[in-house]
Each structure stands twice: as C-alpha cells, then as structure tokens.
Design a protein around this nucleic acid. Structure first.
Length: 820
DNA sequence: GACTGAACTATACC
DNA sequence: ACGGGTATAGTTCAGTC
C-alpha cells in the first residue's frame, strides 16, 4: 500500500476482462507522472411508477438482475441492483440502480427495461467519465490523496503499467480530498506546437515543418531545408523522420498539455493523415496510441495521457464575447490578449521559396507556437477554474459549448439534491422544440436623438439568473395546471404556472450568483488571476443559464421557464423605469437590464440613496447597481424613419473613457476609413461637445477621398461567408467576391472573412455587385459609392442631431461647409 | 426600365 | 444543432406600373 498526493489531468477508461475500469493520468506533488486505475461499476436508473408495491418491485428487481447483453465480442451482465428513494424533476420516486459490467451496453440494457411499472429509464446516456466523477468525486485539477497498490510490470489489466510511459502506476483503494493543498498552485508543463504545409486540404501535401515551444525550449523540425541561421531548426531527410522526431520530442518533454490553435480542425488530423501516408503510426499517446477523433462540428482530437487543448475552441465559446478583435484567428486574438501578433509572411508553394524566404518561414512557424504557448499560460487559470467548478476534465471543458458547460455543471450538482439526471432529448423532440415559435424577450427603450449631458446608468446584476431564482422558474418547478399557492406568469398568449417549492435548478443559480459576488469582491480586494478566473466562470454560468433553459438541445429545456424569465425581467425593469420617472428623472435609454437617465440637478449622493430605496423594493434577490456616471452621451435617429435608433449610442465617462455601442465604428463589415472617421467624429463630439471640429474632420476625409488619396487598405470591406456559396439565395457583393476568389484558385471556406472593394466601372452598372473587385485587383475605388454608401450613412445621423443635414454635408460648396 | 416593398444577409446589443 | 430574443441596415429580388 502506498499513498500519494495526486492532481488528475486526463481521464479515460478501458475494458479488462469484459469490465470497465477508469484510468486517470496526472502528477504527484513531486512532479512525477502518475497513472491511477480505479474500479468503477457503472450504472443506470429505472424509475418506478407511483404506487407500485414493494413486492412487485422485488419481482422486477429479480428479472432485471438476469438481464444479459450478448455480443460477439463481449457479454454485459448486471452486477447488482439497489432500490433507492430518489428525486426526479423535484418529485420523490422509487428507483432501482442497475450496476452493469460494461457501460457501452447501457443503452441496450435500458431497452430491456420495458416493464409497465417502470415509467422512465435514465442516466444511460451520460458519458462514463462524467458518471465516474459524480460518484467518486475525483475532481479534475484538484489535489487528492490516493491510496492503493503499486503496479510494477504486473500482468494485471493486461500489463497496462508497462505500456504507459509513466513514473508510477497505482491501483486505487481510496480517494480522499486533500484540503491541505487546496490552494497550492499546480504549474503544468505546456508544450505548444504548430505545423506548416503546402496544401490546406487534410493530408494532401507534405508537412513542411513543425514547431515546438515550451519553457526554455524552441524547435522547428523540418524535412525541407538546412538552416545555418537558426540553431533551433533541425533538419530531417524525410517527412517520416521528421514525424518520428516530433513524437520523440513530445515524449522526451513529457508535457501535461499539448496546445495548438485550431489543432483539432487542422494540425492533429493533418499529422495523422501524413503519418498514414508514410506508413508510420502517430504514436503521441503515453501508451503509444494514435490520437483518436470524436465526432462533432469540428472533430475532437484526444491523445491518451496528454491533454490536447485546441485554444481556438476554448476562446470561441468562453472568451470571444469579451474580445473585440475582428476574427478569432491567432493573429487577432494574440494581438488583443498579448499585444503581439503573428509574423508577416507571404505564402508561396514551398517549391518556389528562396533561401531567405525559408528562413522567414521557419521564424513564422516558430512564432505561431510561441503565441500559442503564451496564450495557454495566460488562459490557464480560466481553464483550471472552469474545470474545477464544472467538475469536468480539461479536455471536455475546453471543447464544450456554453449549453454543455451549464449542463455539466447541473449534472455534477445533482447529487446534492438526490436527483436522477434527465435524459438528452431525442431527434424528434428536438425537432418539435425547434418548431416552436419565438417568445417575447427584452424591453428596449426608444431613445430620443440628441447629445445629453450628465447621465446616470443603473443595471441589474445577473438579471435573468436572479429572476430565475427569485421566481423559481425551471423544468422541475413548472406546473401543467394551476394549483393553490402557485405562481402565475402571463405570457403572450397563455398563462403558465410554477410551484413555490424550491427547485434545484434555481437553487444552483442562487449558488452561482453568490459565488460570483464573493469572488468579484475578493478580486477587488486582492486582484489576482485566480479570483478573476473564478468570478468570470461563475458570471458566464449565470449568464448562460437563461439561454440554456430555452435551448432545444437541453436536458432541462423548459420553454415556459425561459419565456417567463424574459417576461418577469421585463415586468421588473418597466416597473423600475416607472419609479425612476415618478421621481422626476428623465429616462433616456434602457435595454434589457439597464436604465439610463439624466442626473439633472440631483447630486451623486442622492442618486445612491435612490438606488438603495429602489433595491429595498425589488423582489427576492434581484439587485440594481450603479453602472457608471457619464459626462456626455449621443443618441442618433434611424436611417429609415425619423425616430431614435435603439442599440446605437456613444457615451463618455468621467475619466474620458468612451463606450460606443452599435455604431458602424464597432461593426467589422464597414471599411476602416469609415470606422475610423466615425470614431474620430464621435470622440470630438463627446470630449468637448464640439460638432464643428467634427465637421472639419469629415471635410478633410471627403477631400482626401475625392483626391484619391485614400489607400486601398482603408476602403476594403470585409464580410463573413456564413454558408457555402451555392446556398446563397441572394447574390450579394461578398458572395461575388468569394466567387472571384474561387475562380482564381484561392481557397474559399465557410466562416472566412471575404475582402473586397467597390471600384469605378465602365458603363452604367447599377448593382453594387457589378463593381466588386478583390483587394489586389487593379482598379480605382468608386468615389461616389464610398461617399454615398459608406461615409454618408455613417455620419449623417450624427450631424443631424446638431441640425446639420445631408445637403449641408455634401451638396453645398466647400466654402459653405467651412462656415459651420 | 424605373420604382417599391419584401426577402435575404450580416452584425451588433444585452 | 450545439444559449435566447431585439434591433439596425445594406443589397438584391420580384412584382408593379
């Protein structure tokens, strides 16, 4: 027997003699790589109808215990069964826990439970690792004390310990939390990698080079050119040799995590395809296994024993909403998060590269890994906190959608409520749910165009989450019929009812909100990455929970709860607006959970007192907070009709910081020229309230445009291709540009940002698409188009606020313009 | 062929 | 298919005269 301190990183399972075992790889506190093997009897539940007699239950139990699934390769048997009083969707039920030898056949076992006394079968559709963690509480990335027997070249489990490249292998006897090490940081060995190829299609061309970056380690492996200039470049005669060296380095460096950027979608599958071509195995796993791929929108590439993280996927779901970069490509994201981008390099087919270009190529390849490595270190606290809070392995956390993250959080929290998990909806159910129309959502106040001074902004903290808890809105509290003491919610066309008996989902949200508050406060008192990551993780979970209940793919989908959440949030904000107005404040704007009004002659102290009073009158845990005071704010009219535009405004706070929403400035599908111009105009107007200076800026740009002084870069329009070209019903400019690209042989993929500009053309071309040219296509920009369709729409409504109309801006002589 | 409203499309806000 | 609804706005498309 032996005891170690252990931190779990990678979870997997295997079969041995027809039975499932769980294999977890992690580190001990001395940095040794450890594998622990745990016995686990997976199970599913059968829930009995109400009022089934004990005798009948015993009878069924006996029949269930005899169930066998016979397959050519294995026979799955019921190990044992146990009867429990459980909860299912908030109601107490009698249920039978059915332990089976092989979880792969859980579905088949469930199919054999067609007794009329059994009303539901559950938890056969969870993955075995999720189940294991909920049962044994071996929380990812948390320290545990593991006791057990050391396996040393034993034949147990088919000699797994000798196959794995590890320092120690333990057969688990006991798992305990290790609270002494609760706050001890774990520094992982991170290895970043990136490949370069001639072709983008998987496996079509050779891998030209592979870069590897870790702490104090930099390498570029290549099978193409010797480099005298860089000592980090290592040359191999063949692609196969290079791939072998890559595996050798990964094994030697022994990383806990291997990170790439879009490596699920490109690098790993490409490497595997090339290995196959070369008739070698891409043996990256600690057991020399090849990466395995799991189905999904983008396949998930798993490497045994090493956590492969595709940073792009984690950033896409968890970080993108906080980023303002135009794309989620490595360059843009790295610039924003690290202040450093990719190297510039002009791609050519490798056969056409000159000596010095190869050198630039090596550097380019290395830099990608450098960035991936830095990003991984920066995002590590976030990944860890998500993994700990949601209790799923890093591999899953970094690849899950928001709804999956919420769902995992729920599932791992169910044991506290003695709940059996609801099943995943089947295809026909999903279809039905998707066919349901939309329900009414948030309230948005129609602003009056104008430049306002001294603005107060209040907003509700985690509004929807606090509504869900306050009113107890969830699937398990939803009532089909009205009952005494139920809450009635008026929706668009119907009334729906919710029980007042506390539901587990709203309670979980209460916990999330409280923890979010706690860690936010902790971060304010002592700013550190961990508190920030924690607070952020809880904030995200709180925000996503409302969408989760309205999401057709959710286990705990409840349209009525989602619609009621929106309706009650709306009711509360309208009532609050009413109270603000009753105090003679002038409301200027409101969107979903925020209210903006004029300070007027009141003091800040009065505002804060008023806020306190409002809070004392709010129901449940709903809470209004001061978002900020703003010095000035600009609201404009819509282009079509003469009324204020919603979701479009610019504010400046007392420190001079701008908050611009909805304007073309923040839209990536407008050209840089217009975005910068509008931004400068807004800045001038907000900083000193002077529209005349702003007008001069505009005039200068118009002059430059007319004199053709504007660079090509400035007038490029970028629009995302959201589906395959053939699926477009409307042939819009960006579709035409995409077609042009395809014609010339540039790869065009769904999701790409298509770049083009509008050029002067011969003859009377009416449609915009007839003037589309690609960025490097010869031509002159179309002055009239950029004037009428880009600059004018972006500035017209701003100047209109000051009584300067379109004619004043464009049609009058320049002299007149200077008079303003 | 010019005009007009609807449809399609992309993107933002919260 | 992989959170929800609300909102603006440009361009094309299809119908009218």
């Amino acid at each position: 027997m032996m005891q170690i301190n252990f931190i779990p990183l990678d979870y997997g399972f295997f079969d041995w003699q027809g039975k499932n075992y769980i294999r977890i790889i992690g580190r001990d506190d001395k940095g040794k790589r450890v594998c622990i093997i745990d016995n686990f009897d997976p199970f599913l539940w059968a829930i009995f109808e109400k009022g089934v007699s004990d005798k009948k239950i015993k009878n069924i139990q006996k029949k269930i215990e005899k169930i066998e699934i016979k397959l050519p390769s294995r026979t799955t048997k019921v190990i044992k069964t146990e009867i429990y009083n459980k909860n299912f969707l908030g109601k107490s039920v009698k249920a039978i826990k059915i332990f089976i030898t092989n979880y792969k056949d859980a579905h088949s076992v469930a199919d054999k439970l067609g007794f009329k006394e059994i009303k539901a079968r559950r938890e056969y559709d969870l993955n075995i690792i999720t189940k294991y963690i909920t049962e044994k509480k071996l929380i990812p990335l948390s320290w545990h004390k593991i006791s057990g027997e050391i396996l040393n070249n034993s034949y147990e489990f088919g000699g797994i310990d000798s196959v794995l490249d590890i320092d120690l292998c333990i057969k688990v006897e006991k798992i305990e939390k290790n609270d002494d090490k609760k706050n001890e940081k774990f520094k992982p060995k991170i290895l970043a990698f990136d490949i370069e190829t001639d072709e983008l299609e998987l496996g079509r061309g050779e891998v030209l080079m592979i870069s590897l970056v870790s702490d104090n380690f930099k390498k570029v492996l290549t099978c193409k050119k010797h480099s005298k200039k860089f000592n980090y470049v290592e040359y191999f005669k063949t692609e196969a040799d290079m791939l072998e060296a890559f595996m050798k380095y990964v094994a030697k460096l022994s990383p806990d995590v291997l990170v790439g950027y879009f490596s699920d979608g490109f690098d790993v599958p490409y490497l595997k395809a090339r290995a196959e071509k070369n008739k070698i195995k891409l043996a990256l796993g600690l057991d020399k296994s090849q990466p395995s791929f799991f189905r999904g929108r983008i396949p998930k590439a798993k490497i045994t024993g090493i956590v492969h993280i595709d940073l792009f996927r984690f950033i896409e779901t968890v970080y993108s909403q906080y980023l303002q970069s135009e794309t989620l490509g490595l360059n843009d994201v790295a610039y924003e998060l690290l202040g450093e981008g990719k190297n510039k390099f002009e791609f050519k087919h490798s056969s056409k590269l000159k000596e010095h270009e190869w050198e630039a190529f090596f550097e380019y390849n290395l830099q990608d890994s450098v960035l991936a490595h830095k990003l991984a270190e920066k995002l590590w606290p976030d990944m860890v906190e998500f993994s700990r809070i949601i209790q799923e392995p890093l591999f899953e956390i970094t690849r899950s959608s928001m709804s999956q993250l919420v769902e995992y959080y729920i599932i791992h929290g169910l044991s506290k409520y003695n709940e059996i998990a609801e099943k995943r909806p089947l295809n026909d159910k999903i279809k039905n749910r998707r066919q349901m129309g939309k329900y009414s959502g948030a309230f948005v106040f129609q602003p009056k165009p104008g430049l306002y001074k001294d603005i107060v902004m209040f907003d509700f903290t985690s509004m929807y989450a606090s509504v869900i808890f306050t009113y107890n809105l969830s699937l398990s509290t939803f009532l089909e019929k009205k009952s005494s003491n139920a809450l009635t919610v008026n929706l668009d066309k119907e009334k729906v009812y919710f029980s007042k008996k506390q539901g587990f989902f709203p309670l979980m949200l209460y916990d999330i909100i409280e923890k979010r508050k706690k860690y936010k406060k902790e971060y304010k008192q002592n700013p550190n990455p961990i508190a920030k990551a924690r607070s952020n993780a809880y904030k995200l979970l709180a925000n996503a929970s409302y969408g989760y209940q309205g999401f057709f793919g959710a286990r705990y989908y409840c349209r009525e709860a989602a619609a009621s959440t929106a309706a009650l949030a709306k009711k509360n904000i309208l009532e609050t607006i009413d109270k603000v107005e009753k105090q003679k404040y002038k409301i200027i704007y409101s969107d979903t959970d925020s209210i903006a009004f004029l300070l007027g002659k009141r003091t800040k102290k009065q505002i804060l007192d008023f806020l306190k009073k409002l809070n004392s009158e709010l129901p449940g845990i709903m809470e209004l907070e001061l978002e900020d005071f703003y010095k000035r704010g600009l609201f404009v009219a819509k282009r079509t009709v003469k009324q204020g535009a919603k979701k479009k405004y610019a504010l400046i706070d007392e420190k001079g910081k701008l908050k611009i929403r909805g304007f073309e400035t923040v839209r990536r599908d407008w050209c840089k020229l217009v975005r910068n111009l509008q931004n400068n105009i807004l800045k001038r107007i907000l900083i000193d309230g002077d529209e005349k200076k702003a007008l001069q800026i505009l005039q200068k740009t118009i002059d430059d445009l007319k004199k053709r002084k504007i660079s090509r870069k400035e007038i490029i329009i970028k629009t995302q291709l959201k589906k395959p070209i053939s699926e477009y019903k409307s042939r819009t400019p960006h579709v035409i540009a995409a077609e042009k690209m395809k014609k010339r042989g540039t790869p065009v993929d769904v999701g790409m940002l298509i770049e083009y500009y509008i050029a002067e053309t011969q003859g009377a071309k009416k449609l915009v698409r007839e003037k589309v040219k690609l960025p490097d296509e010869k031509g002159q920009y179309n002055i009239n188009y950029y004037l009428e369709h880009q600059i004018l729409p972006a500035v017209e409504n701003i100047f209109e606020v000051f009584g300067i109309n379109k004619e004043d801006l464009f049609n009058k002589e320049q002299k007149k313009l200077h008079e303003f």
